[in-house]
Amino acid sequence: MNALLTSCRLVIATMLICVAGYATVIWGVGHILTPWTAQGSLITASDGTVIGSRLVAQDFTEAKYFWPRPSAVDYDGAGAGGSNKSPASADLTVRAKEIVTKYGATADNPLPAELAAASGAGLDPHISVDAARYQAVRVAKARQLPLPEVQTIIDMHASSPGGFLTLGRLVNVLEINLALDRAKEAP
């Protein structure tokens, strides 16, 4: 009986300190130090509407935009998930064939692998610089922009995620698409 009572006292103590106290402190630290990312890194357009999160992939299908990696959950930011398919699964072959057709990839010009492979959460905001360059011709044509201009935008936004601990450089798809739209508005 004593032990039960003491257990209840500990429940109250740990709830107050480790849930209420801890969560409030961390919330406060985020509120003061990193107010933008603490809210989910939301990007706001000039007219005040929220157009997305820098960290969350959104669907792009129009030729004038760079396309992100495929998503097993159709870019559902409220119900993320992966395909959970075996890498030998025939379902993945079917999906990859559709994507190959969409991009018009050929044996001489093979598709960068991440454009055919869905990410873990289906919300991966990045593609490799190679995968962006792969799409640059299509994007330039659709926007009637010179190809070097599109490639400059890719290079300006490319970064290495982990320095010498990772291979290759990445671009954020939403960021380069925004940069493209802004480049059009500028002149």
């Binding site: 992966g82 395909s83 873990g120 990045h126 982990g162």
Partner: peptide, 10 residues
Amino acid sequence: NLEGKEMRFG
């Protein structure tokens, strides 16, 4: 194999 993996982690 990139199925189920994120680009940003390497």
